[in-house]
Amino acid sequence: MIGCASSWTGLGPDAWILSCRVKSSGLHPRSGNVVDVSQVFDILMYTDAEGEKYDLRQTPFKARIDLLAKVLVPKDRWLEVVPGVSMSTAGEVQKRLEGAIEARMEGLVIKDAASKYFFNARKRGWYKIKPEYDGLSESLDLIVVGAYFGDSAKRRGGAGTSTDLADNCAQFLLAAKRHNSGPEASVVTVCKVGTGFSMEQLKEMRAKLRPNLKRYDPHRAPSWMGGWRGGPRSKPDAVIDSPANGFVMEVRAAEIVPTEEYEFGHTLRFPRAVKPMREDK
């Protein structure tokens, strides 16, 4: 069972509350702004219409999931089945893992379709897949120059004041300072990051950006962006008026990979904040 904001609409990028503890988010079950949602991911015991009981622990996982779909009637925002997808290649797993990290989730749980259920057992057909951060030996200091909304409804809408923009930012656009560049084009975009910080730190970052944050319009982009306007996955929802009004974030990543999404020509794979706000820089 998980506690979710009462405005929650389902698993995915919009379910930002899943990436933090309800207590640290300022929500409280008795306040009316939190609902308890039961997320079902398996079925171990079953009683049929005739009263016959079945122990399903030695039944293959795929058969259990098929039965679960037949006997459970989900109810939105009360009783729901954890979404899953069948995969058979490492490439499919890689793509799903990247999507999970993009959605500010920790990773994936991979289950062998033929696996049986064992209490208090590890690595018996069930595996947790998370990014490894040993690829880059050093962390990077990058400048926060823009942001992405955590709520896709806000992203689709065009309205919003500066306060609305800041309060809905959940991920951040990071850039590196150009070498020997003038103030009009002082940074080059590198990546976006949405993990590695708590709700309290997120509030501090929002407050820091709030006075200088504005809705991003690629047709009227600020001069510091140069010729970059953002790709399908990298275009921000909001940007600051000047890199001088951003702040430094220390990040780590699994590796640096080529991309056309950012002006740098490369980006960080699985980036996460080590120190969300470097006050000393």
Rank of each mutant, 00 (worst) to 15 (best):
3 G>H: 13
4 C>P: 01
6 S>H: 05
8 W>P: 05
20 C>F: 09
22 V>Y: 09
26 G>A: 12
27 L>V: 04
27 L>F: 12
31 S>Q: 09
35 V>H: 01
37 V>M: 03
37 V>A: 12
39 Q>K: 13
42 D>M: 07
42 D>L: 09
51 G>Q: 13
52 E>D: 07
54 Y>C: 12
56 L>Q: 12
60 P>K: 10
62 K>H: 15
62 K>S: 15
66 D>E: 13
68 L>G: 08
70 K>W: 07
72 L>G: 11
74 P>C: 11
78 W>L: 10
78 W>G: 08
83 P>D: 03
86 S>C: 07
97 L>C: 00
97 L>M: 14
97 L>Q: 10
102 E>I: 06
104 R>I: 04
106 E>A: 14
108 L>W: 01
113 A>F: 08
114 A>L: 10
116 K>T: 15
119 F>D: 15
130 K>S: 00
133 Y>E: 02
135 G>I: 02
135 G>N: 10
136 L>N: 06
138 E>N: 12
138 E>F: 04
144 V>H: 06
144 V>S: 10
146 G>M: 01
147 A>T: 04
147 A>K: 03
150 G>H: 05
150 G>K: 05
159 A>W: 05
160 G>T: 09
167 D>P: 04
178 R>P: 00
187 V>H: 00
191 C>F: 01
192 K>W: 04
194 G>P: 05
196 G>T: 04
197 F>H: 07
199 M>D: 04
200 E>G: 14
204 E>W: 02
204 E>H: 07
208 K>G: 05
215 R>Q: 08
225 M>F: 08
226 G>R: 00
230 G>W: 01
233 R>L: 14
233 R>P: 02
237 D>W: 08
238 A>I: 06
245 N>I: 09
245 N>F: 11
246 G>P: 06
253 A>S: 14
254 A>R: 11
258 P>Q: 04
260 E>V: 11
270 F>R: 02
270 F>P: 02
271 P>Q: 08
273 A>W: 03
276 P>S: 01
278 R>D: 06
281 K>L: 13
